[in-house]
Write a protein that binds this DNA or RNA. Structure first.
Length: 594
RNA sequence: GCCGCCGUAGCUCAGUGGUAGAGCACACCCUUGGUAAGGGUGGGGUCGGAAGUUCAAUUCUUCUCGGCGGCACCA
């Protein structure tokens, strides 16, 4: 079967009829899958309205991996309700449904949906000249522009309701909250199961669980959204910091540390007080108002302004692992992904307009290098351009945008342009990495700023001894260290790269007799900079191995009579593979090089 | 902040209108062991917090704090 079921335009917008320059959508294609998912949304709506006649369907689009439908209804849906709905959907599918398109006048449409204020609102928002389409199926009619398959009998639909949650009507927080039913759907049961398994896997890899099991950090209600780092977690954190620092030093960054608590005088000047006062932690002391810094940039400009800077000093790169605090709404907090106290691997580079290319180029390469080192190979790039409301001249914007584009294209990177998505103060590149479960995380950013240096009075002397305002480039590589640690943990299921892992090697004495030898060995290895631990417990070897593997220690070293006699040591990987070393010195090298 | 669900031992979780239980972990004892769990004994919980209903609340109700899934937000 390869028939045409719909068309799409070049913005991937779907149409139920042929359009100029349209691309046909063949059955069973990726696009057809989306259409099938939208079909399923209608099936879901029929099931819900059958079981709950008072439920008012609102909108129900397809989304990545599935679809949802929002309903306004009296009773809140329980898990049992969801099972019932799922069963009802299966029943409907076994009967099969045809989707029949019908065009009606606005008056007729308003009459048909008169009991559903949401559909009425949608109809009233339609262009008066627009054709109003309905899709009829047995027991259900929806206002819908389509397209749909002509019948559910054209494919197998394997679906599962995954969750129910609240969602504002039209996504506006002052509107009524509706109940959104999420579901996933695929053609084959195999694909469905694969997807569900992936969801399970993601749950298993949850960084909160890993953090607890591995003894990395503590999250407690004593300070919601702030992390208590335990010694192992801090080791991880410091190793990440150390590596990024070493890379930055190669690029002549000047690492600084600015106060966490700063007078609101600075935030008023920078404009943050006006815009984000409600989201800042403040303190009244000595009749003055202070705020915990929500970002580092104004502080770096304070440092910049404290000295006489000339064109010879540019580009000037201030970096800081800056601890910032933002009052995030309670519902936004999410493990280490979204916290109130976080550390940015921040830097601000002051430069001239001519230096934008070089600075952004070195930064883009830095970001890529760092991601690779942490095991992320797939990176996506977006460039956000001038929004409607912005400051700075058109010329400056064009220059900056072109330089950003040139950086990426010169490095043979494909990128998307997000028109008008830039900040009001300048364009940016965003770096998004993809993890081993296919999830995407936006981490790095390079942002050009035409505003803040001017606003805070930053100046440098040019070759004519005239004062000029520098351009400032904000950049972050991993973004928030806290969040990045969560990403790394979930990406690797706790098997973080060897050079940052808190404990690299567990030394396992075969019996009590060898503990002393192991302790000496441990001391030697520690002095060589290897992070080791001795398991001197009264357990059998198999148990010790199991234990060190479950604590995510990547290597173990079994030490007994055999090893001590022969001086031949086997480094055991977590998978049980052994690498033989003729002397301890040899694997010092192994750890230092990995 | 909003909607829904949840909060019981260090961890994962069971359970009940009559003040609690398992597995793992931990301690001690036996075992001195060779590559993913040897055996025994034992300690440990104001059942998130406050108030209410009740003869009696961990269990029911309300409030509150926190967590999770979304929505909204994210300089």
């Amino acid at each position: 079967m390869n028939e045409i079921i719909a068309y799409k335009d070049h913005n991937d917008e779907y149409y139920d009829h042929e359009i100029i320059d349209g691309v046909p959508i063949k059955s069973k294609s990726e696009d057809a899958l989306n259409i099938m998912r939208h079909d399923m949304a209608h099936i879901l709506a029929e099931a819900v309205t059958t079981l709950f006649p008072n439920a008012k369907p609102t909108i129900g689009p397809f989304i990545k991996n599935g679809f949802y439908y929002d309903f306004d209804m009296e009773n809140t849906l329980s898990d049992e309700d969801l099972s019932k709905i799922e069963a009802q959907m299966k029943k409907i599918l076994s009967e099969g449904r045809d989707f029949k398109k019908r065009s009606v006048s606005k008056e007729d449409a308003l009459e048909i949906f008169k009991d559903n204020q949401y559909k009425v609102e949608l109809i009233n928002n339609l262009d008066n000249s627009a054709e109003i389409n309905l899709y009829d199926q047995k027991n259900f009619t929806d206002l819908c522009k389509g397209p749909h398959h002509s019948s559910t009998t054209e494919y197998d639909a394997n679906f599962k309701i995954t969750s129910v949650s609240g969602a504002y009507w039209r996504g506006i927080s002052t509107n009524k909250m509706l109940q959104r039913i999420y579901a996933t759907a695929f053609y084959s049961e195999r694909e469905l199961n694969k997807y569900l398994k992936n969801l399970e896997e993601a749950k298993e890899r949850n960084h909160r669980r890993l953090g607890t099991d591995m003894g990395l950090f503590l999250l407690t209600d004593l300070s919601a959204g702030n992390v208590f780092w335990k010694e192992k977690g801090l080791t991880l954190y410091q190793n990440i910091e150390k590596y990024i620092r070493s890379e930055q030093q190669k690029l002549n960054y000047l690492e600084v540390k600015t106060p966490e608590l700063v007078s609101n005088e600075l935030w008023i000047k920078s404009g943050h007080w006006d815009n984000f006062k409600e989201n800042m932690f403040t303190s009244e002391t000595d009749n003055k108002t202070f705020a915990l810094k929500p970002m580092n940039c104004p502080c770096h400009i304070v440092l910049f302004n404290s000295q006489l800077i000339t064109y010879k000093d540019l580009p000037l790169r201030y970096s800081e692992f800056g601890k910032c605090h933002r009052y995030e709404p309670s519902g936004a907090l999410n493990g280490l992904f979204r916290v109130r106290g976080f550390t940015q691997d921040d830097a601000h580079i002051f430069c001239t307009g001519d230096q934008i290319y070089d600075v952004c180029n070195e930064t883009a390469l830095l970001i890529e290098r760092v991601y690779k080192r942490f095991g992320f190979e797939k990176i996506k790039y977006n460039i956000s351009t001038k929004p409607e409301k912005s400051i700075g001249t058109k010329e400056n914007w064009d220059n900056a945008e072109n330089q950003l584009k040139k950086v990426l294209s010169d490095n043979n990177k494909e990128f998307n342009i997000l028109e008008g998505e830039g900040a009001f103060y300048g364009p940016k590149i965003e770096f998004t990495l993809e993890d081993s479960l296919g999830r995407e995380w936006q981490c790095g950013t390079i942002q050009i700023d035409f505003n803040l240096p001017e606003r805070l009075g930053a100046k440098y002397k040019d070759t004519n001894d005239k004062n000029q305002t520098p351009i400032m480039i904000h950049r972050a590589v991993v973004g928030s260290l806290e969040r990045f640690i969560a990403i790394i943990l979930e990406n690797t299921n706790g098997w973080v790269p060897l050079f940052i892992t808190p404990i690299q090697l567990a030394i396992l004495p075969v019996s009590e007799k060898f503990i002393e030898y192991c302790n000496e060995l441990n001391q030697q290895l520690k002095e060589a900079g290897i992070r080791t631990v001795v398991d001197g417990s009264d357990n059998k070897l198999g148990y010790k191995i199991r234990n060190s593997v479950s604590k995510k220690i990547p290597y173990s070293l079994v030490v007994g009579e055999k090893e001590i006699e022969s001086k031949n040591f086997n480094l055991r990987s977590r998978k049980g593979e052994n690498t033989s070393f003729a002397a301890i010195e040899e694997f010092k090298e192994f750890f230092q090089n990995n």
